[in-house]
């Protein structure tokens, strides 16, 4: 089942305006509505405002980094099950594994490939368990 991107609202988190705006324009290109945040703390504020379907976040940020954000989201009562995609220039195995352990669902290397972003968003929003129950 293809997700209808037009009904989606994504949270794009990156302290860097330039890179964030690239991500935002890619997402908007898919028809996704985008909310932005500069760091983990701001991201949590945006999440509390509601309506977010997916989080795409950088790792290295001031105030609260991407790892902590993943942890906070997974521990929260309201949005613990939201898909989280991590984007980073760090392509070290340690970093990626750490992100997954903190609760990230997927990882994309920066500079990102637009098609990969689309593919990853589609798959993190399509849990296999749901496919089973939908038959």
């Amino acid at each position: 089942m293809e997700k209808d991107f037009n009904s989606l609202k994504a949270l794009a988190v990156d302290d860097h305006e330039n890179t964030r705006s690239r991500l935002v324009s890619s997402l908007k290109g898919f028809g996704i509505t985008v909310v932005e945040a500069e760091n983990g703390i701001e991201a949590l504020d945006r999440l509390r405002e509601g309506g977010i379907d997916i989080i795409l976040t950088d790792i290295v940020m001031p105030e609260m980094d991407g790892f902590e954000l993943c942890g906070e989201v997974r521990r929260s009562s309201d949005f613990h099950s939201l898909p989280i995609v991590v984007l980073s220039t760090h392509c070290d195995t340690n970093y990626i594994i750490k992100a997954l352990r903190y609760g990230a669902d997927d990882y994309i290397a920066k500079p990102f490939d637009v098609e990969l972003v689309k593919k990853v968003i589609t798959r993190v929003l399509t849990p296999v368990l749901k496919e089973i129950s939908d038959g």
């Binding site: 195995t93 594994i97 997927d106 990882y107 994309i108 290397a109 490939d113 990969l116 296999v128 368990l129």
Partner: peptide, 20 residues
């Protein structure tokens, strides 16, 4: 694995299977 590292995709496959 396409444009992602092999080990990452392997981990993700692991996660899919462990959901089932």
């Amino acid at each position: 694995p396409g444009k992602q590292p092999s080990f990452l995709v392997a981990c993700l496959i692991y996660k899919v299977v462990s959901e089932l």
